[in-house]
C-alpha cells in the first residue's frame, strides 16, 4: 500500500520536474544547433511560473474544464505508468486527455483555434493507430500488455522491434510538436495559426496545458524506454539518442501540411509496423 502511494507521488512529482528539465535541455540544444547561446536550463519553469501568476481570463468555462481534464488525464496516464499498469489502458487515458484539449479549443469562437483543433484531430488520427500497433508489437513479443512483464523481458525489445521503434519516433515527433509535424500548434507560435489549438488558452490555463504536455513527454519517453529495459545504461543511451534525433529533425525540416502528414505517416508508418509484425509472427 505504501509502495503504491510512493509510486503515485513519484509519478506526480517526476512528471513536471523531469518534463520541465527535458524541455529546458531541448531549448538549449536547439539554440546551440542554431548557433545561439540560448536560455538557461530552468527557463521553462520560469515561463510556467509566470503564466500561473497571471490574471485568469476565461473565454469559455468549458475551456477551463477541458484544461483541467487534460492535465488530469495526462497525469493519471503517467501515474499508471509508474504503477506498472496495463499499457493499453495508459494509451486510452492519454488519448482522453488529448481529445479534451481539442474539445476545449473547439469551445471558443476563434477561427485560429478551430482550425488548430481540426488539425490536432487529424494528428491524433495519424498517430493513435501507430501507437496501438507499437503496443501490439510488445504483446506479440512478450505475450502481455502489462508493463511489469514487458520490463521483465529477458532481452532488449529493440532487437526484435526495430521498425516499430522508428514508428514510435514518428509518434514522438507529432506528440512533441516538432517540425515537420508542428501543424496544430508549436512552441514559438510562429505559424499561420498563431498558436493554433492553444490560441485561446491563456494565463494559468495555458500553464496547465504546458504542465500536462510535460507529463505526456515523460510518458512517451517511458514508452521509448521499454525498448531497452534490460539495463539502465542502455536505456539512458537510447533515450538521449532518441531525443537528440528529435531535436535534430526539428531543425532540419520545415513545417509540412496535414495532407502530407496523413499520407506520409500512414504510408510509411503502417508499412513499417506491418513488416515488423509479420516478421515477428514468422519468427
Amino acid at each position: 500500500m505504501t509502495r503504491t502511494a510512493i509510486l503515485i507521488a513519484c509519478g506526480l512529482i517526476a512528471g513536471p520536474i523531469l518534463g520541465g528539465l527535458v524541455s529546458g535541455m531541448d531549448r538549449i540544444l536547439t539554440a546551440r544547433m542554431q548557433s545561439r547561446i540560448g536560455p538557461p536550463l530552468l527557463q521553462p519553469f520560469y515561463d510556467v511560473a509566470k503564466l500561473l501568476f497571471k490574471e485568469s481570463l476565461v473565454v469559455n468555462v468549458w475551456q477551463v474544464f477541458c484544461a483541467y481534464c487534460y492535465i488530469a488525464a495526462s497525469s493519471i496516464a503517467l501515474v499508471l505508468f509508474f504503477l506498472q499498469s496495463d499499457l493499453l489502458l495508459i494509451l486510452f487515458v492519454q488519448a482522453v486527455g488529448a481529445v479534451m484539449l481539442v474539445v476545449g479549443a473547439l469551445s471558443s469562437t476563434s477561427p485560429y483555434s478551430h482550425i488548430g483543433a481540426h488539425r490536432e484531430l487529424l494528428q491524433i488520427l495519424s498517430y493513435e493507430p501507430l501507437l496501438v500497433l507499437v503496443v501490439v508489437g510488445f504483446y506479440l513479443e512478450t505475450g502481455s500488455f502489462k508493463l511489469t512483464s514487458i520490463y521483465a523481458w529477458r532481452e532488449p525489445l529493440l532487437l526484435k522491434l526495430p521498425f516499430l521503434f522508428i514508428v514510435l519516433g514518428y509518434v514522438l515527433t507529432i506528440k512533441l510538436r516538432k517540425s515537420p509535424f508542428d501543424l496544430s500548434t508549436c512552441h514559438h507560435a510562429h505559424q499561420e495559426l498563431v498558436k493554433g489549438l492553444l490560441t485561446d488558452y491563456s494565463g494559468p490555463f495555458l500553464a496547465l496545458t504546458e504542465i500536462a504536455h510535460w507529463f505526456e513527454v515523460i510518458l512517451l519517453l517511458g514508452i521509448c524506454s521499454l525498448f531497452w529495459a534490460t539495463n539502465w545504461f542502455g536505456m539512458a543511451i537510447l533515450l538521449v539518442a532518441t531525443y537528440f534525433l528529435e531535436v535534430l529533425v526539428d531543425n532540419i525540416t520545415s513545417r509540412m501540411n496535414w495532407r502530407w502528414m496523413l499520407s506520409y505517416v500512414w504510408g510509411v508508418g503502417l508499412t513499417l509496423s506491418l513488416v515488423n509484425l509479420i516478421w515477428l509472427h514468422q519468427g
Partner: peptide, 16 residues
C-alpha cells in the same frame, strides 16, 4: 521567408 514555412534554424543562419 524560412520562418514563414516553419524552418526556424535556417532563419537563424540567414540572420547570422
Amino acid at each position: 521567408f524560412a520562418d514563414s514555412f516553419g524552418f526556424e534554424s535556417l532563419f537563424m543562419q540567414f540572420w547570422r
